[in-house]
């Protein structure tokens, strides 16, 4: 049960950003396209050179090897990538995966990557990420390629994962209605930095 904290984190081309995401809550993040929402998430998991620091409870990013930090803080990019032919080859085990919750059959693990639809890819990528039991989640438009039913499945899976395990979540979304529905707090990234958005 730990909170995610960004300390003067400066992705390339962005101002230093401070942000606290309390344990078990979802913070939504929106903003015009190209403003750097993805860059911010990439900076948190240290994929691009950046300044500043991030911490999960007592565990500070800059004081641990990057791969260890990335296993701790699960990042789901907008586009998923697969490096082997079969879905199941990207997973270490077959047990305990939330396939049913994502509207996928257990055989999905035997599917070939080339036959996946973009929505299936996106949901399987989430299953792949959750299989590593990350202690925080950074989601880059996780429902962008999904129809309403599957979008709701993903939203409630993440909400439960966050609530039950006390996981802090940053959820990038363009959809205001979705932000209001799932978020506990809402942030907008603009050219002058991050500010909180309050709806009535």
């Amino acid at each position: 049960m730990t909170a995610l904290r960004l300390q003067a984190l400066s992705p390339p081309t962005l101002f230093p950003i401070d942000l606290d995401v309390p344990t078990g809550t979802i913070s939504t993040l929106s903003g015009p396209s190209g403003i750097g929402k993805t860059l911010l998430l990439r900076a948190i998991v240290d994929l691009d050179p950046n300044e500043g620091d991030a911490a999960l409870g007592e565990q500070t990013r800059n004081r641990m090897p990057a791969p260890q930090w990335r296993r701790l803080v699960g990042f789901l990019p907008a586009e998923s990538h697969w490096w082997r032919d079969r879905v199941g080859d990207h997973f270490t085990g077959r047990d305990g995966l939330p396939l049913a919750e994502l509207g996928l059959p257990a055989e999905a693990l035997d599917w070939n990557i080339s036959r996946l639809s973009s929505g299936e890819r996106q949901r399987l990528a989430l299953a792949r990420l959750l299989a590593g039991s990350p202690q925080a989640l950074l989601l880059d438009e996780p429902t962008a390629n999904l129809d309403a039913a599957n979008g709701n499945r993903v939203a409630s899976l993440i909400k439960n994962y966050s609530r039950l395990q006390g996981i802090p979540v940053i959820w990038v979304s363009h959809d205001e209605a979705q932000c209001r529905r799932i978020g506990d707090r809402h942030w907008v990234l603009g050219p002058d930095g991050l500010r909180e958005q309050a709806w009535n």
Partner: peptide
């Protein structure tokens, strides 16, 4: 050309040697 795949593996916590092994 396989930047996305390499980074996908790094994101999941792979060491560089593992992410670029193949």
């Amino acid at each position: 050309s396989k930047r996305g795949e390499i980074e996908a593996r790094l994101i999941l916590g792979a060491e560089p040697g593992e992410a670029i092994r193949e």
